[in-house]
Write a protein that binds this DNA or RNA. Structure first.
Lengths: 196, 196
DNA sequence: CTCAGAAACTATAACCACTTCAGATTCAGA
DNA sequence: TCTGAATCTGAAGTGGTTATAGTTTCTGAG
């Protein structure tokens, strides 16, 4: 069972957490580029080698988890949606409460979100994490719509949905922007009245 | 006039070309990760500092141009499309002949394309180049459809179109994949028959 | 309880992409 | 012809990242 982790795993998690905390604090104070991994390792009281053992994806990954949670929500949102609700509606609602789209957050998470949005390297890595769920989301969508998981249309839809956080995250009203994009995905682009 | 460049600009262009050629040759032979920038500089007979003076975006940019051409096609394709043709039709046709979507290429360009598609770092940079045209494309689309260039729907459409090369580039039949995605963007995702 | 092995950690050294800088060379235009 | 700007260069340095070899700490089986 995983109810109680062994001392080993507990210590590992502690170290990871210490790294994450140190990185977030230092980034917030001096900016992402103003902090070296050596400083972070020092602050967390581990060696540089240990730092990279915990974060194989590099400096940017320090303040993120591995994205496994998101994958679970997304797939669950699609699979367990209420009867009569479309896949896109389910995803729209699922996303509305997460990522950059909600305003009632503990001030800690809020400033973290601002840091990510304001730092290109972190924004890019955040996008990578979302996109890492593309395969899983595509499978869920395919299962619910009776299509093949390798169908390009399914993959494209999954990708486009997962791009929304980065696309809408910088807008003045992220939630409204997100809704506009979902509307586009649901209805398509109206073929304009043809030029001259 | 720019009919004849001065000796200075000519030499600059020569150096840039030498770097590009050297990089492409070495990448093709030893793989992207199997080549150091020092080797490329050596092969092109310039110093490392000079290499980076020509390619401020880094190693990956060596085999690419700055993407200004693409931007011109894209905007022109939207602005100068024949009467009665929708914006998306114009973009679909424009892309069909470019990027990874055509099979009749000189073998040099073909192998270059394969190198890019098969190398994550190069794929990613190629995507960045496409996305760099998002603003320009959004403006063109906005102008043709009577919307505001800051309209999120417009920006999202531009982004989604520019993502197509990376999305469809790895498919067995890239052209068919591209068409499927354009169909999705034109018609939207059919709200499936509702779950249980 | 013990012991073998796995896992986490460490210091050190190295590699590589990339930047900086001061100085030499080459070119453009007045 | 002369001045200033652009290009190039070597060298030194920064910072992220990995490899190695060895130490400590936990775990599970006997």
């Amino acid at each position: 069972m995983a109810t109680t982790m062994g001392r080993r795993e507990r210590k590992k998690a502690q170290t990871r957490q210490a790294l994450s905390d140190a990185a977030l604090r230092l980034f917030s104070e001096h900016g992402y580029d103003g902090v070296t991994v050596a400083q972070i390792a020092e602050e967390a009281d581990v060696s540089i080698a240990t730092l990279f053992a915990h974060v194989p994806d590099g400096k940017e990954a320090l303040i993120f988890d591995d994205g496994a949670e998101r994958r679970v929500w997304l797939v669950a949102a699609v699979r367990d949606r209420p009867a009569g609700q479309s896949v896109l509606e389910a995803l729209r609602r699922c996303m509305a409460g997460r990522g950059p789209f909600t305003d009632d957050l503990p001030p800690g998470l809020r400033s973290k979100r601002d840091l990510i949005v304001g730092t290109p390297a972190l924004r890019e890595y955040s996008r990578k994490l979302w996109i890492a769920s593309e395969g899983a989301l595509a499978e869920a969508i395919a299962a619910e719509s009776g299509r093949d998981p390798s169908d390009m249309t399914v993959r494209a839809l999954a990708r486009y949905v997962l791009e929304i956080p980065e696309l809408a995250g910088t807008e003045p009203d992220p939630l409204a922007a997100m809704n506009a994009i979902f509307d586009l995905l649901e209805s398509g682009w109206p073929r304009s009245p043809g030029k001259p």
